[in-house]
Measured scan of single mutants.
Amino acid sequence: TIDDAFRAIERAIQAENEGRYREALKHFLDGGEMIVTAAEKEASQKVRNLLLHKGKEVLEWAEHLAEWILE
């Protein structure tokens, strides 16, 4: 659900702030994927587009974090 997705993102932010970057990455990926999944089930085109945009933002952040971890 969207609530689960945002809880995962909150955990990711907390982990990132505490320097637990790999854990943060996992939570960002989980949250982003949950948002995209919820968007695919959404009946309203406007809400679907907003959710897809937010999911994409979260997944892009996860990608940047992963690249930073690997440096």
Results as ranks from 00 to 15, higher is better:
L52C: 14
K56I: 09
E57G: 04
Q14C: 10
A39R: 01
Q14A: 09
H53D: 14
E18D: 09
K56E: 05
E71Q: 11
L52R: 05
R22A: 09
A24L: 08
S44C: 13
G32S: 11
F28R: 00
I2V: 10
L50D: 12
D30T: 12
N17W: 11
A39M: 10
Y21M: 05
H53C: 14
I13M: 04
L50I: 14
F28W: 15
E16A: 15
L70R: 14
A62M: 09
A39T: 03
D3H: 10
K54H: 08
R20H: 08
A15I: 02
S44Q: 08
E10N: 08
E63I: 13
K46I: 13
A66F: 09
W61A: 04
K54T: 11
G32V: 15
A66R: 12
T1D: 09
A15G: 04
E18I: 05
L52I: 08
E16P: 02
E16D: 13
L25I: 14
A66S: 06
A24S: 02
R20F: 07
E60I: 08
L59Q: 07
R11H: 06
I69H: 06
E42K: 03
A12M: 06
A38F: 08
L65I: 05
L59Y: 09
L25M: 06
D3L: 14
L51P: 01
I35L: 15
V36Q: 06
L70H: 10
A38D: 01
A66K: 11
W61Y: 15
Q45M: 09
E60S: 10
A8S: 06
L52F: 06
V47N: 07
L65M: 04
A38C: 11
A12W: 07
A43W: 12
A12I: 07
A15E: 06
R48C: 13
E18C: 11
E67Y: 10
G55T: 04
T37N: 11
A12E: 00
H53S: 14
T1P: 08
E16C: 15
V47F: 09
L51C: 09
G55W: 15
N49V: 06
T1Q: 06
E67M: 09
G19N: 02
K26E: 08
D4K: 10
E33V: 12
A8T: 13
R11P: 00
A66L: 14
F6L: 09
Q45S: 11
G19W: 03
A24F: 02
H64S: 09
K56F: 09
A8R: 10
E63S: 13
E67H: 12
E63P: 00
E18T: 04
R20G: 03
D3A: 13
F6N: 04
R20A: 02
N49A: 02
I69M: 09
E33K: 14
D4N: 10
D4W: 07
L52S: 05
E67A: 12
I9G: 03
I69W: 05
G19V: 01
A5F: 09
I2C: 09
Q45E: 14
V36C: 13
H53E: 14
G55R: 07
E23S: 03
G31M: 06
E40H: 14
K56W: 11
A43Y: 06
E42H: 09
N49I: 09
V36W: 06
E60P: 00
E67R: 14
W68H: 08
A24C: 12
G31V: 12
F28V: 04
F28L: 12
E18M: 07
R22I: 13
K26L: 08
E16Y: 15
E23T: 03
L52W: 04
H27V: 04
A62D: 00
E33P: 02
I9K: 00
G19M: 05
W68L: 14
D30E: 14
G55F: 14
E63N: 10
R48S: 03
H27G: 11
H53L: 15
V36A: 07
V58F: 09
R7N: 07
L59P: 00
L52A: 07
L65P: 00
L59G: 01
I13D: 00
G32N: 08
E10D: 07
I35N: 02
K41P: 02
K41V: 07
F28A: 06
L59N: 04
L59A: 05
K41L: 09
A5M: 06
G19L: 02
I35F: 14
K41F: 09
A39C: 12
R7C: 09
R11Q: 11
E42Y: 08
E33R: 15
I13Q: 04
A8V: 12
E57T: 10
L70N: 14
L65A: 01
Q45L: 10
K54L: 15
G32D: 01
K54F: 15
L50E: 13
A8P: 00
S44K: 05
I13R: 07
E10S: 10
E67V: 07
F6V: 05
E60G: 08
L70I: 14
R48I: 07
E33W: 15
R22M: 14
E57I: 13
E63M: 12
A66P: 01
L25W: 06
Y21V: 04
L25C: 08
A38W: 06
I2D: 01
E23C: 08
A43L: 13
